[in-house]
């Protein structure tokens, strides 16, 4: 890092951001816009997951509940003609409230217990969304007519990406992050030394819920139709987490690298291969798990490559 002229790195990031920002304006195909919209969505989900899963070291396999609650909140409010900004505000606020209310009981669980209990939580919410037919439309789903907001949704998601990555940088460089890391490494020791573990843990969960929740709201606004398994299903639950793990949990770049890598691999396989793309995708995941402890970001060759680029 030190060998790199500081400005060059920022220039590169600014260029990238600028390029992403003008995509919808260049008259490029909307496929490209949708493609990046979902990429952004995964970056937001993976990075916000990683605040808890990576820095804090609590494997929150149920991160997508916040996304789902956000999406349903937005959908239900929109359907009842609540104004747009209030709908978005609540689609962020409700997941945060939910996070606050589960943080005490769930954070009593440690290690694999926490992972599994949160995993069970998604299933519970999926079932509730399925059964509370009056509110959510049940398995029939929730359909709204919101106009076609691809471009707006794109910019909203892009802003969220910037915000969530900046949050991750901030956590990485401040005392707050240091406290989280100490909890990850030795929670009991950290508490004994005066770190208020409970407060830090629930703070982090609430922040991560904010991003996932508002992303859920934007998603619903754009896609206009959700049903319980499309927002509380296993696919949306596991994909961002796997991406974060694959890229390198607990680093700023990790989740982003993981998302970009898997997303491009997926897209490439889906469009160029007629059969067995999921199998290949699975094999790639397994190989990374086997041979890249700590994910791509912590891989020696990848680090070397980063240096080489710079």
């Amino acid at each position: 890092m030190r060998s790199v002229p500081f400005k060059l790195k920022w220039l590169f990031l600014a260029l990238l951001l600028g390029a992403l920002a003008i995509i919808p304006l260049t008259g490029a195909s909307t496929y490209l816009v949708v493609f990046f919209f979902f990429l952004f969505m995964f970056v937001v989900l993976a990075t916000s997951y990683d605040l808890v899963g990576g820095y804090l070291g609590y494997l929150n396999l149920g991160h997508s509940v916040f996304f789902g609650i956000g999406a349903y909140t937005f959908g239900v409010l929109f359907l009842h003609k609540v104004n747009l900004s209030l709908s978005f505000t609540l689609s962020a606020a409700l997941p945060m409230l939910f996070a606050a209310s589960i943080s005490y009981p769930f954070f009593r669980l440690r290690g694999a217990y926490f992972a599994l209990a949160t995993f069970g939580l998604i299933r519970l919410l999926e079932l509730l969304a399925q059964n509370l037919t009056g509110l959510t439309g049940g398995s029939g789903g929730l359909s709204i007519v919101s106009g076609f907001n691809l471009t707006t949704a794109y910019y909203a998601a892009l802003c969220l990406v910037v915000a969530v990555v900046l949050t991750s940088v901030a956590v990485n460089r401040t005392k707050f992050g240091l406290a989280l890391t100490s909890i990850r490494e030795e929670e009991d020791v950290a508490s004994a030394l005066g770190v208020n573990a409970a407060a830090y843990k629930s703070m982090t969960l609430i922040i991560s819920a904010f991003y996932a929740g508002i992303m859920g709201g934007i998603y619903m606004w754009y896609i206009t139709y959700i049903h319980p398994s499309s927002v509380f299903g296993l696919r949306i639950a596991l994909q961002p987490i796997v991406m974060a793990m694959l890229g390198g949990s607990g680093t700023v770049g990790g989740p982003v690298v993981g998302v970009v890598f898997l997303y491009f691999v997926d897209e490439f396989l889906m469009t160029k291969m007629a059969y067995l793309h999921v199998a290949v995708y699975g094999v790639i995941m397994t190989l990374v798990g086997l041979f890249m402890p700590g994910g791509i970001m912590r891989n020696a060759r990848f680090k070397y490559f980063l240096k080489w680029v710079k």
Partner: peptide, 8 residues
Amino acid sequence: ASVLITLG
């Protein structure tokens, strides 16, 4: 790693 490997 176990999540990645076994899910894969």
